[in-house]
């Protein structure tokens, strides 16, 4: 195991985020606050409470997830796409490292960044509504697992994309719809029955549900199932990354 390589990749990825701190941390936090003001306060004040929780507090876990997913995917995909685009990838490919070290470095850094963003949003939300975290350990586990699994997904997109356009394509066409239809702003049983079934194919539903349960002990699906789905999703992503490096897919000619 080349731990030095993991260290430097991680360090320089974090450094890059630090150098663009406004873009990396401030902008996701600001946009989440905007959601919060609009949905939570303006519209939320006219919505009765959901399952006994004020609407403003109800959407906090969903909002955090929303930010985590989009940030993880964009951080990780950009992090690995950029060296491919500029050609500096040659160095990583010629270095004595395996895919494990590359993933640990790049995905680790992307996941750390989203984790920090998640925590900042959580703290910020505490200023607007009264937060209750029933199961902090579960909450943190979901937070961390989500950061990791969606950073892995972003990493795959960054390896797959052949242009900046393609880099934006998947997040725009797949991730954003999945997130908005993933129950961030509502519970699944508010939907017509047919859509409830469709929702069960959306992995984000399990994430949001499990995460919200760790706050308020209300959920769409059982928390064990949520956890299982997140783990499954991570394993699938990891296998794809492994296959990509094994075959040199779009990395080696």
């Amino acid at each position: 195991m080349n731990t030095q390589a993991v260290k430097v990749i991680y360090k320089y990825e974090m450094l890059r985020a630090w150098n663009t701190i406004l873009q990396s941390f401030a902008s996701p936090v600001i946009s989440t606050i905007l959601y919060f003001v609009v949905f939570g306060s303006a519209i939320g004040s006219r919505i009765e409470s959901v399952e006994g929780i004020s609407y403003g507090a109800f959407i906090v876990p969903g909002l955090i997830m929303l930010a985590l997913l989009t940030q993880s995917v964009s951080n990780a995909s950009f992090g690995i796409y950029f060296p491919r685009f500029t050609g500096t990838m040659y160095e990583t490919l010629s270095a004595p490292i395996s895919f494990i070290e590359i993933v640990l470095g790049y995905v680790g850094a992307a996941a750390t960044k989203s984790f920090i963003i998640g925590l900042i949003i959580l703290v910020t939300a505490g200023f607007f509504v009264e937060l209750k975290i029933a199961h902090p350990i579960w909450m943190l586990s979901f937070l961390i697992l989500t950061c990791i699994s969606f950073s892995l997904l972003g990493f795959i997109i960054g390896l797959w994309a052949e242009s900046f356009e393609q880099l934006q394509l998947i997040p725009l066409l797949v991730i954003t719809p999945l997130v908005f239809l993933g129950g961030s702003f509502y519970t699944i049983d508010m939907l017509p029955p047919a859509w409830q079934t469709v929702s069960l194919f959306n992995p984000v539903v399990y994430l949001v549900s499990g995460f919200r349960w760790s706050f308020y002990e209300v959920s769409d699906v059982s928390v064990e199932l949520s956890l299982l789905m997140v783990l499954l999703f991570s394993v699938i992503c990891l296998s794809i990354v492994w296959w990509m490096f094994k075959t040199g897919y779009r990395l080696k000619r």
Partner: peptide, 23 residues
């Protein structure tokens, strides 16, 4: 080709390279 990350200092980039090779 002149393939380098442009927004990194000379010192940082060589430290990165050394680490990447496990030193």
């Amino acid at each position: 080709e002149l393939t380098l990350s442009m927004f990194v200092s000379v010192w940082d980039t060589i430290c990165f390279s050394r680490g990447l090779f496990g030193k």
